[in-house]
Amino acid sequence: MKYENQIQVTFPSKSVNEGLARSIVAAFAAQLDPTLDELGDIKTAVSEAVTNCIVHAYPNEIGIITLKAKITGDGVLDLTIRDKGRGIADIDQAKTPLFTTGGAERSGMGFTIMESFMNELRVTSQPGKGTTVHMKRKIVKRGERP
């Protein structure tokens, strides 16, 4: 695939890495000159996807999370967050607002937030093999902002 810039990071599913993942993507996205609002949206979506890997994919173990960020032509930030954990049997159900298998500490709104903060969200998963979350966000060029 054609890309203008790209990074890939792998890290263990420890909660201390949630903030790190947000900061890495924010620093990478900075070259698109996003607004504070756009940066907030991107960090939120990354936080949701990475937290899901930590909480749901690897509930009783530490596993590996792979984060890829790409900048494609016309200023699109393209993010892939992948785990090799438990997987999701029914993705439509998982995406339903308020659906959670996480108990009182979770609200079941993660996918809903990713969907509303990004332009595109695609989830693929295989039970027992892992889950890949793919998200895109167009960053509006300075001169074209309203």
Partner: peptide, 13 residues
């Protein structure tokens, strides 16, 4: 300075 859905569960609780 930042909040994700973990904050939603905090508010709901």
């Amino acid at each position: 300075t930042f909040m994700d859905s973990s904050g939603i569960a905090i508010v709901i609780n």
